[in-house]
């Protein structure tokens, strides 16, 4: 299996790695401090030249969760077609990760979306600002403590009547 050799090589280099497996998804769990090194090693030594997915999840209400945010990087080796997921855990108040933009340009908008939705900062990102929500929006909507129907922002506009327009 291609995954086994990659994971064995990674474990030899980064001793503290934890690996899990579910269906055909292979995951490597790493601390935020070593995240960039692991990503760089995967890119340079194992040929993972595409970052096909970068997302996060808020584990506030997850059963038996110990950490608040999980950030997931999905990497793909275009030559062999092997996929691998790198996961890292984050807790408040230090919600900062190194940006993956120097490794893959595709990380640009994906990181901006994670920032927009969860408020996770990416250190070294060239242009980290809100992408989907308006600039004036103050909350991070996909966090679990933000209600589905919002806090009334959607009603907060001026009304134009017939006579005025």
């Amino acid at each position: 299996m291609a995954h086994d050799t990659i994971i064995a090589a990674l474990k030899a280099k980064f001793a503290e790695l934890v690996t899990t497996e579910f269906r055909d998804n292979f995951r490597v769990v790493v601390a935020p401090a070593r995240l960039f090194d692991v990503l760089q090693s995967l890119k340079d030594e194992h040929g993972f030249n595409m970052l096909f997915e970068l997302t996060a999840a808020d584990y506030l209400k997850y059963p038996k969760a110990t950490d608040r945010f999980g950030v997931v990087y999905g990497l793909l080796n275009m030559a062999t077609g092997v996929r691998i997921f790198v996961k890292t855990w984050l807790n408040e108040p230090d919600l900062t990760l190194p940006s993956a933009f120097p490794l893959w340009k595709g990380a640009d908008w994906l990181e901006r979306e994670v920032y927009d939705m969860y408020g996770i900062l990416f250190d070294g990102h060239p242009d980290l600002r809100r992408i989907l929500m308006p600039e004036a929006f103050t909350s991070f909507p996909l966090r679990k403590d933000y209600p589905l129907r919002g806090r009334g922002e959607r009603h907060n506009f001026a009304v134009i009547t017939r006579a005025e327009s």
Binding site: F22, N25, R27, A57, Y62, V72, R83
Partner: peptide
């Protein structure tokens, strides 16, 4: 209780879902 990523080839490209 786990996480999974599944993708198909949509007309625009790889359309995937990541379910926790």
């Amino acid at each position: 209780v786990d996480e999974v990523y599944g993708a198909i080839e949509s007309p625009n490209g790889e359309l995937g879902f990541y379910i926790v």
